[in-house]
Simulated assay, not measured.
Amino acid sequence: MVQGTLSVESMLDKMASELKTLLIHRQIEDPIIIGIRTGGIWIAERLHTALALDNAIGTLDISFYRDDFSQIGLHPKVQASQIPCVTEGRDIVLVDDVIMSGRTIRAALNELFDYGRPASVTLVTLLDLQRRQLPIQADIYGGTLSLAANQQVKLTGPDPLTLEISQKD
């Protein structure tokens, strides 16, 4: 059983290198990086710096797009999404910290398409927990992790960024 804290620096280096290669391969020269609040924004900022991109980073708060919104209600820290430019016809790099069921990414895509129809969306995530409920797959990920049913993972940051693995309460 895994428990403790993991550094994410090597994962970020791997992700930045793979993302740069993928963007070159797909001939994407000016992507918009958009992070999903909160951990996805921290990862997006690091990738944005590593790729030396000029345009601003976007942020998504998917609270209103969640499929369990009617069950869990409004989170007290909901913030507005901020997209720095028109997304219609643009190449988007969508970033989240952890992908598990795929439901967060589905909600993010729903919100993203409300801003316009992008030319492409590349999904990047720090950690893949491989517990899919929806057929959503990251293009780039830093690593995979199998957790026991009584464990959880949380990204803390923004500086330093660490993954904390702990027992559920």
Results as ranks from 00 to 15, higher is better:
H75E: 10
D67Q: 06
R37M: 14
G40H: 01
E29R: 09
I72C: 06
I34L: 09
I28W: 05
L53E: 01
D61L: 04
I72Y: 09
I62A: 14
G39N: 14
T59L: 06
I32L: 01
I57W: 06
I41G: 05
G58L: 12
G58Y: 05
S63C: 00
T49S: 10
Q27W: 09
L53N: 12
G40E: 00
I33D: 03
I33T: 15
I43H: 12
F64V: 12
L74M: 07
D30W: 08
S70M: 13
I28Y: 07
G39I: 09
G39R: 08
D30P: 13
T49A: 08
T38N: 11
L51W: 00
F69Q: 10
R37G: 01
F64L: 02
A50R: 11
P31M: 15
G39T: 03
W42N: 11
L60V: 06
L60S: 09
Y65R: 04
R37A: 01
L47P: 04
I57H: 07
E29P: 00
H48S: 01
T59C: 06
I34M: 14
I34A: 11
D30I: 10
L53P: 01
D67M: 00
I72M: 14
N55T: 08
I28N: 09
I28R: 00
I34G: 00
Q27S: 03
I43P: 13
L51Q: 08
Y65C: 10
